[in-house]
Simulated assay, not measured.
Amino acid sequence: MTATVDPSNSDQIAAWDGDQGAFWTKHAGRFNDGVAAYRDHFFSAAAIEPDAAVLDIGCGSGQSTRDAARQAKDGSALGVDLSARMLDLARELAEREDVPNATFLQADAQIHPFTEGGFDVVISRHGTMFFGDPEAAFANIARAVRPGGRLALLTWQPARRNEWMSTFRTIFSAGREQPTPAPRAGSLTDPDLTRELLTSAGFTAVELHPVSEPMYFGRDVEDALEFIVDQFGWMTRDLSPEDRSRVVDEVRADMRSHRTEHGVFYGSAAWIIQARRP
């Protein structure tokens, strides 16, 4: 890690520049395919103009950054993330896909000294939910937006409204009690807390629009199962081999009921969040 990270984000850099980042790099295509149905909603809200300067927060492997750069064909798109591995993949894909106006930087968006007013649009696809100090983070992001510029975020609604999330958490918990975390502003799942957070950071005209789309998990049951066991399997580490096997069998059975001719899909629900910088 070469960038400066705020101490409140130490756990995030350990995860995203470590095993978590490696997992997401390995499955980058699957994660992009999983939320592909939200792409049009997201970029319609972003309304990126051809000469725009775009900042993509938590860009991961850079799919949204490259998409933004294509729309800002006479402008630019900068993607920032904590994961060096995902950024390496993002740069490789931008070169392979011939998107020269997409660039990438390893940085903690909570404290990075972005050029004040340097961006017309700030976007993030599920990348702004993890800040240790969300108030400081969004204030820093707001300073990077020019007067009249826009913010467009895609974030999850609460787990109870996301079939995939609630289903897999329940099955992998194997009957054990699941903690129910209290809503917090930085999670961006609660509309009132989100409006309060973004308004206090310096944004105006904060709006949240609910959208729901089927989420893709694999071309067939076994393909989806392998992916989900990789993602949620850590929850069964303290179980016996027999109990872990029962969990996998239960997930497989549930996935059979979600199989379609186009693959395995579960219901999902997200917020499109829009705001402006006065």
Rank of each mutant, 00 (worst) to 15 (best):
M1S: 14
A3M: 05
V5Y: 12
D6Y: 03
S8W: 04
G18S: 07
A22Y: 03
W24G: 00
W24C: 04
T25H: 10
R30E: 06
R39L: 11
S44H: 12
A47S: 15
E49L: 15
D51K: 13
D51H: 13
A52D: 12
A52T: 01
V54D: 09
L55S: 02
G58V: 05
G58R: 11
S64H: 06
R66L: 12
A68W: 08
A69D: 02
R70K: 08
R70S: 08
R70A: 03
Q71S: 13
D74W: 13
S76I: 12
L78C: 07
V80L: 01
S83K: 03
M86D: 01
D88N: 06
L93W: 00
A94G: 06
R96W: 03
N101Y: 04
L105H: 07
A107H: 04
I111F: 00
P113S: 08
S124Y: 02
T128L: 02
F130E: 00
F131Q: 09
A137D: 10
A137N: 00
I141K: 01
R143A: 14
A144K: 08
P147G: 05
P158T: 14
T167E: 15
T170G: 06
I171F: 03
I171P: 05
G175A: 11
E177Q: 15
Q178H: 06
A182F: 06
G186K: 07
S187G: 03
D190I: 03
P191A: 02
P191G: 03
D192S: 12
S200N: 15
F203L: 14
L208G: 04
P214E: 10
R219H: 02
R219F: 00
V221S: 11
A224H: 08
E226G: 12
T236M: 09
T236W: 02
R237G: 02
V247R: 14
V248E: 15
E250R: 14
D254W: 01
R259Y: 03
R259C: 03
G267V: 13
S268Y: 09
P278V: 08
P278A: 12
